[in-house]
Design a protein around this nucleic acid. Structure first.
Lengths: 189, 189
DNA sequence: CAACAAAACTAACAATTGTTAGTTTTATAC
DNA sequence: GTATAAAACTAACAATTGTTAGTTTTGTTG
């Protein structure tokens, strides 16, 4: 592993603190203490507290957007697309569970352009997800339950994965994917 | 409907603001403005900002604890117990969606005894939930997937219901229960 | 060792925070 | 109409907030 830049170290430390208490409750002095330095010293590396938050959230949101676009443009069946979405969430969660806490709970503290940009990405993501489910229902690949409930319950579980998986000790990514696919999809197929 | 006491009005207004921005980001001046009064005037009715938060969260947590205890002590099958849990969450969510945002996202800002009390209730709740699933698996009422994943994915969906149901227009509680039961349980039965 | 950049420091700022004290207004009861 | 209680107000507090300016220390490169 190559050493993180000082800026990246700060962002990673911030993500952990944001996960524990939320963006608003974490002070720059808290963050500095976690880094073993003084608050003012942080500003040699970052521009503002807000920059930390937006870096954490926007990077992750773009990862999801990119992954979803690949899935949407693929030639898989609807069910296979859903499996790929589950796989995407597992991958991102294993790589950056701390950051996902901010994405889920602190996105509303983004400012101006970043807030608008984030909300558009989230909206498009949900829209793509919904379209995949709809297509699957019209295909008769997926049972015609309430579509909104399928979308909501699957997304809820995937979005909350960051809270749960750290409690499981050393769970293998592929086993996790397989089990998530079973539980989330067996009911709707 | 009987008129809410002034204190209850404040707590309800606070729950809405807490849902939008989180406990830490809402100031007493924000809350006062929402009530159309000055911040100092709030203190004629409440003791502290913390008291508002703990009232919102502890009341809800006790509702869940009470409901879960009734289900645990009933003579239903495991599946019926799970259906009753789903029904409990739907009922509580329809009655107080705003407060559930605080319970889900701001419980860590509870102080001392209330924090300990809350964490115990949450732990016991999850433990009861898990035991019901385990019993169902040993009964062969429930498929023997990864138990932890079943518990986690079901709870995630139920806990996030408060975010989603307000977007559905005038959805009937009983229809919602029926559909939730279908999507959450058909996969694991 | 001299030079330079990276990264830390001290000290302070203006704004905002939850909360208190004391006072005035508003509504209710006799 | 006067007394009482409820609910608002003004003014201020001590602490904490994100951030800046200016300075010193640390580490690297020739």
């Amino acid at each position: 592993m190559k050493p993180e830049s000082r800026k990246q170290e700060i962002i990673s430390a911030a993500a952990i603190l944001f996960k524990e208490k939320g963006y608003s409750a974490v002070t720059m002095r808290d963050l500095a203490k976690a880094m073993g330095i003084k608050a003012a010293s942080l500003y040699n590396h970052i521009q503002s507290k807000q920059e930390i938050l937006s870096t954490i959230i926007i990077d992750l949101a773009e990862e999801f957007t990119f992954g979803m676009n690949q899935i949407v443009n693929s030639e898989y069946s609807s069910i296979q697309k859903l499996e790929n979405i589950i796989s995407l969430h597992v991958d991102v969660t294993l790589r950056n569970a701390d950051g996902l806490a901010s994405l889920n709970n602190d996105w509303m503290h983004l400012e101006e352009d970043n807030l608008i940009y984030f909300e558009k990405m989230r909206h498009d993501y949900e829209e793509n997800f919904r379209d995949i489910v709809k297509k699957g229902v019209s295909n008769q690949e997926i049972k015609a339950y309430n579509i909104e409930i399928i979308v909501f319950s699957t997304l809820s579980t995937l979005r909350t994965l960051y809270l749960w998986y750290p409690k499981q000790k050393n769970i293998d990514a592929n086993i996790l994917k397989r089990d998530m696919i079973s539980v989330l999809l067996q009911g709707v197929i």
